[in-house]
Amino acid sequence: MNLNIRYILAHGWFTGLAAIKSSYYYIIANLCLPLSLLFVVGVLSHGELLPYALAGGLVSMMVTNSIQSAGELTQFRLDDRHQDLIIATKTGPLDYMFGEMLGSFEWSIPSILLYLALDMSYHLLTPYNLVMTMAVCILVTVATLSLVFSILSFVKYTRKSWAISMMLSTLLTVIAPTFYPYTYIPKSVLFVLAILPSTPAAVLEQGLFGLEPMSWLMLVILLAETVVYLFIARYVARWREN
């Protein structure tokens, strides 16, 4: 595997930090749902479940940004024909996806900083938590973007991709235990939901913040999903068609 690091860095920069200047309003838009749910959960639980919404909000925001990035790749493929332009170079599908993942992570930096500041104000953050939280953020970005990219690779019209993205967004950010304690649902349901990368990520965050028992199994699941979803995405990417 001969990755095109130059392209990954350039794609990451241009679709990440460099794009914030012209599209900053999307950062606010993507924060609307997790911050609104933070407010609702806080009010309904009289503040008791607020730390859960803080832990899950970060995961939710990373997932939302990843879905949006996968949607952007769909637009690049179907509308802008950017993917075709790149196929005829020595850049492969992994370079292309890693570039978008890097961009998605860079794009999330302002929101990550906001959540870390909120976590600190609720005394949820320790140096160990911080490192582990960053690792979870990276893994959930790679796994989610790969999963959604794979699903959207079968879409032939951009309009359909919007509807699919909306459905996936709800599944990944609301149904998964991002805004409620994972112990509230039966284990069998939890393991079904674990197919969504946001589930192991949220469970890990709740464990790291000391809100619920730590489940190392979920770390294994998240790592496995990251590898498997990336592998699938590599093979379903419409790179050189038959």
């Binding site: 860095l9 350039a10 332009l85």
Partner: peptide, 10 residues
């Protein structure tokens, strides 16, 4: 520039 980086140009 992005396109040229895909062509592995420095």
């Amino acid at each position: 520039v992005l396109y040229l980086s895909a062509r592995r140009m420095r």
